[in-house]
């Protein structure tokens, strides 16, 4: 099974370890991983800012890069959601290309849901000695149906205890360009999230989107919390936190 890995621009720039953890997880699950070397961005920043033309151009690039794969896996609910649920809208005026985009959308998965729902993985290699809490990122949860899958996999990580926090489904305030454009509101939402994370008593928060990780970690550190770790679920599952 040939699985295309779209690491996302944020992993490429900010946290390459997430991409390598994803490769390990996919290979352990028995997939042959293909990483297109020229991959960049799914077009979501343009799309969500109203710049349809640029979003369209980037979406064409992604479709071209990955349509030959059996599956497309993304270690981000947000970018997976862009491809799965929003490419159709972008190509509404181009039926020929829309069919190609729809075919790719149908085989696009967020990483943990691919591992659990498609590859039927129940055990992973990772080990983590400590207590973590899980933050459900918005697009993963509400566009891709990611809720139980990361928890199933985290339950299989040796040494790890999961302690849920209140409002784990409430947005952390990242929202892409929103985080800069409406920085004050974004910070307040991040601060609420940090309070719940700290209140849970966990020594790390685990989640599935690097954008939200930057937001939460940035706020934790500014609050003076240098202890609580902010980890991508792929890093924890692969044992590379």
């Amino acid at each position: 099974m040939r699985v295309g890995l779209f690491v996302t621009c944020l992993v490429d720039l900010m946290r390459p370890s997430v991409g390598f953890a994803a490769i390990e997880l996919l290979e352990s699950a028995g997939a042959e991983v293909y990483v297109p070397p020229a991959q960049t961005c799914c077009g979501q920043p343009a799309y969500n800012s109203g710049d349809r033309a640029d979003a369209l151009a980037l979406a064409r690039k992604v479709v071209g890069e990955f349509e030959g794969c059996d599956h497309l896996v993304v270690p981000s609910g947000s970018c997976a959601g862009m491809i799965r649920t929003h490419y159709a809208d972008l190509f509404a005026d181009d039926p020929a290309f829309a069919a190609r985009a729809a075919a790719l959308a149908a085989k696009t998965h967020e990483l943990t849901s691919f591992l659990v729902d498609v590859m039927k993985v129940t055990r992973v290699a990772g080990r983590y000695d400590g207590t973590v809490t899980y933050h459900d990122c918005c697009a993963g949860l509400r566009e891709m149906g990611v809720k139980a899958q990361p928890r199933v996999l985290l339950a299989g990580v040796a040494g790890l205890t999961l302690k849920e926090m209140p409002e784990c489904e409430t947005c952390c305030g990242f929202g892409g360009t929103f985080s800069v454009k409406f920085g004050e509101i974004s910070t307040r939402l991040a601060d609420n999230k940090c309070r719940h994370i700290i209140g849970s008593g966990a020594d790390a928060v685990v989640l599935g989107d690097v954008g939200c990780m930057l937001n939460i970690e940035g706020r934790l550190r500014r609050r003076g919390d240098s202890a609580t770790r902010v980890l991508h679920v792929a890093e924890v599952l692969a044992g590379k936190p």
Binding site: R15, A190, N215, R221
Partner: peptide, 17 residues
């Protein structure tokens, strides 16, 4: 807009690609 209320975690220095 970001750094008024938050730090920005710095990248590791090399890209995934």
């Amino acid at each position: 807009g970001w750094t008024d209320g938050r730090d920005m975690p710095a990248p590791r220095g090399r890209t995934f690609r």
